[in-house]
Amino acid sequence: MEIPYNVEERPDTGLYNGKLGIWLFLASEVMLFGGLFSSYILLRTGDPNWFKPELSVPMATLNTMVLISSSVTMVMAWASLRLQDFKKFRLFSAATFLLACAFMVIKGFEYNTEFSHHLYPSSNNFMATYFTMTGLHGLHVLGGMVVIAYLWGPGSRMWKTEPERFTNRVEITGLYWHFVDLVWIFLFPALYLL
């Protein structure tokens, strides 16, 4: 028996199954990160002795550029499939993966610099929230990388048998990836600039 609405949109919701699923998941993610942002604001405004050490703004700036670029390559990958160009899809998704790798490497250098300055999650409230939020975000980037790598490699076999369903899979991965990038867009000014 074939599962309905895997490819075509369900008439009442206007969404196919995968897209409905990813939006429900992203709604839960909004609550997760929303809770963390709220905690950060309450901790910061409630502490008269709030201490924020110097962080590497240039490295965070570079990471912001890297993530914005990766969202562009992600959309290009999906658009290539819509235009039936599988070779370009592979090129753009490889670029997205490499940009995600670059983000993680830069973040690793940043953490290393902080540890060398004896800044740990136990140092103060700011560093605790900083490592929690950036660490959780990093895990989300890692999760996205696994999915992008799968769709680039073994998962791409579906293109030959069910091209529309494969294109939908790339679209929902793109939605997730944009959400992860959007979280960083809010993390960057909140943690590094303000």
């Binding site: 959309v75 999906w78 939605l175 990038d181």
Partner: peptide, 9 residues
């Protein structure tokens, strides 16, 4: 859609 989310992003 991804198109709309990308524009918003």
């Amino acid at each position: 859609s991804l198109k709309a989310f990308h524009v918003l992003f």
